[in-house]
Structure formats: C-alpha cells, structure tokens
Amino acid sequence: MPKTFLYYGGIKLTSKIPYDKPPCPDTELLQQLRNRGLDIEDETRTIRYLNFIGYYRLSAYFLPYQSEKDKFRDGVEFDRILSLYIFDRKLKLTLMEAIERIEVAVRAATTNYMSLRTGDAHWFLNENHFDNYSPDKGKSFQSFDGYLQSICSSIDRQIDATPIVHYYSKYSFPDYPPGWVVMEVLTLGQVSKIYSILRTKYKRKIAKKFKTSWQVLEAILLSLTVIRNKCAHHQRVWNVKISYPPARTVLKNIAPQYSGSPNSPCVIYFMIWFILTRINNDSNWGARLCEQLLELDESLLHKIGLDLNEIYTYLIEE
C-alpha cells in the first residue's frame, strides 16, 4: 500500500494506518461506556444527550474522570461528565461576553486613532504606516502585500454586509471603504495582526488609550484571538492552555504577584480583566466569573492549576 501524505501547518505527515473504525449506533455506544466503568442510570436520557451533543464531543470530557485510557474511575456517573460539559459551555459564554467588549474597543481605538493621526480615512492602505512584519508564531503578516490580500479577501467575503453594500452603492472611489467600515468586517485575528504590524509609534499611542504598553496589548490580543476562536467553534476552554503565552515581563504587568505557569487558564482571566477594567472600571465580570468557577469540582481546579484565592485576588480585590 502506498504511503499517504497529509499536510498540517506546512508540515508533511505520513499516515501510519488506515482508519477503519465503523460508526456505532446509540445502544452500542451506551454499552461501551458501561463496559468502561461509567455509571448510567437513565438510558433514555443519556442517549438523548449522545444524540444532541455527540459521543465524540463528550468524549473530551471523559478524560478527567478516567484512571487510564478507556477506563473510568469507580463511581463516576454520566451526570458528572455532563455537568463538566455544561460548565464549559457556560464558561465560553462568559469569556465571549468579555472578549467581544475588548474586540470592539480595540477596533474602535485603532481606526479612530489612525484616521485622526494620519488625516486619512483609508490609512490602512498606506504602506508607510506599517513596518513590523514577522512570520514568528503567526503573530503578524509577513509582508504588506500579504496583509492587503487578507484585507481584500475579508471585504470580498462580506460584500453583502450592510456597511459594505452602503459604501459601494453610493461611492465610486476609492476602491475600498474607509477604515472604520473595513474594521467591522475583519476578524479579531486580523485586527490583532494589523495592530502588530503598525509602526511602533502608533502602537504605543493606541495602547496608551488602554493605560498599558504596546507590548502588553499586543500579547493580550494574540492570546485572546486563540481563545475567542476556541469559544466560537465550541472547543473546550475549561482546561485550555494558552497557545502563545505572554512573556514573563508582560505577565508581570498584568498580574504582578502571579508566579504560576504563563499558559495556565487563569492567565486568560487575568488578561481579559486587565483590559476590561480599562474599558469599564465598574465591570462586575470578574465577580461573576469567580462565582462561576466555584461550580467546578475542586479536584478539577487543582488538576488544571487554578487557584481560586489567587483568581479572586486579581479579579475582585484589586
């Protein structure tokens, strides 16, 4: 059999064996869970959740309750797994609420400052305003042409969006809408990358609006982009590790007394809270998040390195 080559992130992967697992009906999946030691009291109810959530999605929540691969610890009930799934779903909603507020604020702060500073509504088309290209960790565009291509593609994909339709139905020139319109059709990832390639003198002024340095704001936007995408695509976040953790020097600005891992879930909460309080210092988001975290089993908190006392200190007491 010839080898099959796959590509992921530019890396060539070789598939070792063909996938030959057949799909299983609900009754077989139910029995499989029982064979692996999971307590199931209500078969009809469990099957309903398997149907409307999916065995594969739920299987990611099995792991904390297993003593070894495909073996549940004694006394683990299906409802404990379901509770963790529901907790994670609610946590995603809480995180998205805050990230949306931050995303909108950064969009506005960036295009407002750049438009007024340059006196040009189409500042985003001027290469002279950008110079920090770098392929490192996907933090920014590698060239101005690559940046423009990404922006143009987003406009094309959103060509039926109301602000875009309004512009092209009324104006014949320039070829692209003004910055404040374009910003509304970009992803948070693109907004983050635009900020990262702006000339440092511009980044510094925009960050000042959030009472921080450009290094801190850039690091936060990079990390929050990943978390935002996980939330939007319904991936697990309760035990997520930050893909691009902030440098220790940056983390010291966000949470000075924190000495734990920089890719811990609690760093996500600290970063969100750090920016959120600079947008609205009366926000109760931190208190609501702390109350929500109390719903998580203490054993699971320790498993992912969450210290509620430390989180409480940064999100409520400060």
Score class of each variant (00 low, 15 high):
residue 206 I to K: 10
residue 177 P to Y: 02
residue 201 K to Y: 12
residue 186 L to R: 06
residue 177 P to S: 04
residue 187 T to C: 11
residue 181 V to Q: 03
residue 183 M to S: 14
residue 180 W to H: 08
residue 197 I to C: 07
residue 194 I to Y: 07
residue 157 R to Q: 11
residue 190 Q to C: 01
residue 164 I to N: 09
residue 158 Q to L: 09
residue 177 P to I: 05
residue 192 S to T: 06
residue 157 R to H: 10
residue 157 R to F: 09
residue 165 V to L: 11
residue 205 K to R: 14
residue 211 K to H: 11
residue 167 Y to W: 10
residue 199 R to A: 03
residue 187 T to F: 11
residue 194 I to D: 02
residue 209 K to P: 00
residue 165 V to S: 07
residue 163 P to N: 11
residue 175 D to Q: 14
residue 169 S to D: 15
residue 191 V to S: 06
residue 181 V to W: 00
residue 195 Y to D: 00
residue 183 M to W: 11
residue 194 I to P: 04
residue 182 V to S: 07
residue 211 K to F: 08
residue 186 L to H: 05
residue 166 H to E: 09
residue 198 L to A: 02
residue 166 H to Q: 12
residue 190 Q to N: 13
residue 188 L to T: 10
residue 182 V to R: 02
residue 170 K to W: 02
residue 205 K to Y: 07
residue 183 M to F: 15
residue 179 G to L: 07
residue 178 P to G: 04
residue 156 D to W: 09
residue 195 Y to T: 03
residue 209 K to E: 10
residue 168 Y to E: 00
residue 182 V to F: 07
residue 159 I to L: 13
residue 158 Q to A: 15
residue 176 Y to W: 10
residue 159 I to C: 04
residue 184 E to N: 12
residue 181 V to P: 04
residue 161 A to K: 13
residue 191 V to W: 01
residue 206 I to M: 10
residue 164 I to F: 09
residue 163 P to L: 10
residue 167 Y to G: 04
residue 160 D to I: 14
residue 179 G to A: 13
residue 161 A to D: 14
residue 183 M to I: 15
residue 181 V to F: 00
residue 160 D to C: 10
residue 174 P to A: 08
residue 164 I to G: 08
residue 210 F to Q: 01
residue 171 Y to A: 01
residue 203 K to L: 07
residue 164 I to M: 14
residue 204 R to S: 14
residue 204 R to K: 13
residue 163 P to I: 04
residue 210 F to N: 02
residue 168 Y to S: 04
residue 162 T to M: 12
residue 189 G to P: 06
residue 166 H to C: 03
residue 208 K to Q: 13
residue 193 K to L: 01
residue 180 W to G: 01
residue 173 F to W: 12
residue 173 F to E: 08
residue 192 S to M: 05
residue 174 P to V: 12
residue 184 E to M: 05
residue 187 T to P: 02
residue 159 I to G: 00
residue 181 V to H: 01
residue 188 L to A: 12
residue 165 V to P: 04
residue 162 T to A: 11
residue 194 I to K: 06
residue 157 R to I: 09
residue 156 D to C: 09
residue 198 L to P: 08
residue 182 V to K: 02
residue 193 K to S: 05
residue 158 Q to K: 15
residue 168 Y to R: 13
residue 175 D to N: 11
residue 155 I to E: 01
residue 204 R to Y: 01
residue 208 K to D: 11
